[in-house]
Design a protein around this nucleic acid. Structure first.
Lengths: 244, 244
DNA sequence: CGGGGGTTTGAGTCCGTTCAAAATACGTGG
DNA sequence: CCACGTATTTTGAACGGACTCAAACCCCCG
């Protein structure tokens, strides 16, 4: 019931619990049915690419389940993990708006389901319902703020502090509170990717993690992280910042 | 004729040569007159602040002449120069869209004229002319791309290369071609600000500049820079990238 | 059991920072 | 127009962080 899309079953986006949290929440019943009929839902396996930098923008992608990674490279071939996308997030609206080729790529981090909405469908809905445009405007404005925060952090923080910030952001999404009040989570990313998110080499990140353990800030074992309650709310700026 | 706004003279935005290059170009004659009647134009002296981080968003600002600097700080009080704004650029639409307080500040770098458009006026025009919303959508999408490019550069380039990139971007705006095919410009920023744009200390920038002179890449004298023709198109990624 | 990717660790080097002081440019008032 | 005080810029020396290159390690999968 949650998952369904292009074809067989009847609920479609209507029954999608994500609708409330996504840009599409402003569509009325009829529009939602229209969207439902015209989107294509696809499963992705871990590591599969959803779209790649350089290819033309044929539409937008809406994450239904799982986690997606947004990657962007520079001329020298270096690649950076810009951000993560979660269920409810709509990807690739920029290329569509500007009518340009994709400037970054997206890939599934684990088994995921992602809906594709064709350019024509988006265009039609945008014309029919101006509130949808407003939604995207608000969404992109938020993304913009996040990107700017990210820029400021990168310019002012040490790699260690950047990583702590990243940990906290990830914990907000992927973490659970332990019975003792500490927090733990399963990291959705490899160390390599974690490193690229803070603009450091993976060796450097490895050492940072080592230091964090020495200092008793956190414990790492494979992809599981544990942070003691006492080390959670201190140590960084106040608000438990969101992902970026 | 070019400059005028809230009051006395007649041309207003109608005659503004920037109208073609700004988001407001989609307004028809009547709408432009309306805009013209309701905006407040103000002169700013070098260093004067246009708006500051933390204050409520009462409207947007449109640069009519001069150059404005967008500054953003973090919790620790460090401040970063995010980007520059030039005639035709509209500032502060984000806070307005999201109904939030300003998350960054803007200040005039030299004597400038900036028009203020009240929130109510923007809202009215947005409702009357949906194309205006489209314009802002495209504009913010571009800003987004720039911000992401900036992020990737910061994560992958050395300070030296970041500065070279910045130099080239500034040269595109402020530079002139010399008779010998070289390029020169008057830097619009202090070294301190230049340093903050690439996330480095001003001492570091000073040394980078020194090395650039040693290597014969460029010559610096006060705020004037000269780059020889032979060193212009090489040395960096291909496209003479734009400001960000 | 043998890859192969991801991760850790090590040694050496370079880059960038910090702190401090000198030098230069700049604006103001005399 | 010059003198002075202030802010910016440059330079120096020492330190520390982060990078490179390289090797060892580990874990998962075939």
């Amino acid at each position: 019931m949650v998952e369904q899309g292009g074809g067989a079953s009847g609920a479609g986006c209507m029954g999608c619990p994500l609708r409330q949290r996504s840009e599409w929440c402003v569509l009325n019943e009829e529009e939602t049915r229209f969207l439902s009929r015209h989107l294509k839902k696809r499963r992705y396996r871990a590591g599969e690419t959803i779209f790649s930098a350089g290819e033309p923008s044929h539409g937008v992608y809406c994450v239904a389940s799982g986690t997606a990674a947004i990657r962007k490279g520079n001329a020298e071939g270096n690649t950076v993990l810009l951000r993560l996308a979660y269920p409810g997030d709509t990807l690739g609206y920029r290329g569509l708006l500007l009518g340009e080729n994709r400037r970054y790529g997206a890939e599934a981090l684990g088994p995921s389901k992602v809906c594709f909405v064709d350019r024509a469908v988006v265009k039609l809905l945008l014309e029919r319902n101006p509130a949808l445009g407003q939604q995207f405007l608000r969404r992109i404005a938020r993304d913009m703020d996040e990107a700017h925060d990210h820029l400021v952090r990168n310019a002012t923080l040490s790699n260690r502090d950047k990583f702590i910030h990243l940990l906290r952001a990830l914990m907000n999404r992927h973490g659970r509170t332990a019975t003792d009040g500490g927090h733990f989570m399963e990291l959705p990313l490899s160390r390599r990717d974690l490193a690229s998110m803070i603009g450091a080499r993976h060796e450097t990140l490895s050492r940072i993690i080592g230091r964090l353990e020495e200092d008793g800030i956190a414990r790492f074992s494979g992809r599981t992280v544990y942070v003691a309650r006492s080390h959670w709310l201190l140590n960084d700026s106040r608000p438990p910042t969101l992902l970026d």
